[in-house]
């Protein structure tokens, strides 16, 4: 298993080798894999410094000249620090710029709330023409970058760090995929939380409860039809996300399930600013979105 950041940089390298009209901008933020891109493409791979607003505007200008641009920074800064530039200069003009946010949700854990991106789906999802992709393993990272590269409009990729078990084996993905099936409930997850959902499904199976897991790769546009189809025959759906309740993926899940009679439980972060510091698992426990909390919630909902 490779760190998803290195997979991301490897895929960018592949794309830049094959297309001389791809420009990579980053705001003084990288990982091991970035070195090779900088070495091979010193003119097309540019550190703009810690200046996200300018990075987004420059990306828009380069895209106006007919090129594809990928911009990269910590998710919290790649989204909100330059939100207006994304809204007006990129989305307003419908330009093919991929915004890759490193560390969505509480990925940066103990670095604290300045580095948390817990409302990125709500904020970027509200922008015109913006797609949101949320990969969870090596193959889906490659799929996300390929899709962002092929897109004619803006795309936001929630890129996480760390290595995770492979759930996919191809580089082109459907909007969402049923990773495992179950008859009593369905967990709808995305990104690294899909792995927590799978752990919860396993615990529940050991308790004699059959639970399926859906991984959402494309949060926007949300595939309401696909989720509705996958929900057929299930009475309970639990959506889980490392995002505040307001405007997150769970809102889209609820929309998909409207008039189906299926009970939907949304497990999200609360609205408050996190207080205290710890690792990511600590935050997950605190906000009750880890495998244990999902297991407990589903057990209580099913057993009443």
């Amino acid at each position: 298993m490779n760190d998803m950041r290195d997979v991301f940089f490897d895929e960018i390298l592949n794309i830049m080798r094959s297309d001389e009209h791809v420009i990579f901008l980053f705001a003084d933020m990288g990982a091991m894999g970035l070195g090779q891109i900088r070495k091979e493409f010193p003119l097309r791979c540019v550190n703009v410094g810690i200046a996200e607003q300018n990075m987004a505007n420059v990306a828009a200008g380069i895209a106006l000249a007919g090129k594809k641009v990928i911009i990269y920074s910590i998710a919290a800064f790649a989204t909100l620090r330059c939100y207006e530039q994304i809204k007006i200069s990129i989305c307003g003009m419908g330009l093919p710029v991929a915004i890759v946010g490193m560390g969505p949700g509480i990925s940066y854990a103990a670095d604290g709330p300045t580095h948390h991106a817990t409302c990125d789906v709500a904020s970027l999802g509200a922008l015109s023409g913006m797609s949101i992709l949320s990969p969870c393993d090596e193959s889906s990272v490659r799929a996300a970058i390929r899709e962002a590269y092929a897109s004619t409009g803006p795309v936001y990729v929630r890129l996480d760090k760390g290595a995770y078990p492979a759930l996919y084996s191809c580089n082109t993905l459907a909007s969402m995929t049923q990773i495992c099936t179950g008859t009593q409930a369905l967990i709808v997850a995305s990104g690294v939380l899909t792995h927590e959902a799978l752990r919860a499904a396993k615990h529940l199976e050991q308790n004699g409860i059959s639970v399926g897991v859906v991984d959402v790769f494309r949060i926007k546009p949300f595939d309401y039809v696909a989720l509705k189809n996958m929900s057929t025959g299930v009475k309970l759906i639990v959506s889980i996300e490392e995002h505040v309740a307001w405007g997150g993926m769970s809102v889209q899940v609820a929309q998909a399930l409207k008039n189906t009679g299926i009970y939907h439980e949304a497990m999200t972060l609360c609205e408050e600013q996190p207080i205290g510091y710890g690792d990511r698992a600590w935050y997950w426990r605190r906000y009750e979105i880890d495998a244990a909390a999902i297991t407990k919630r589903i057990l209580s909902l099913i057993s009443g």
Partner: peptide, 30 residues
Amino acid sequence: DRHIPGVEADTGSLGNGLGIGAGLAFAAKL
């Protein structure tokens, strides 16, 4: 806005035109 013939970029929120222009100039130079 760019739908108007001759207008190159959406502007009106101040402070963004120079960055967009710098991106255009960067691409042309490249």
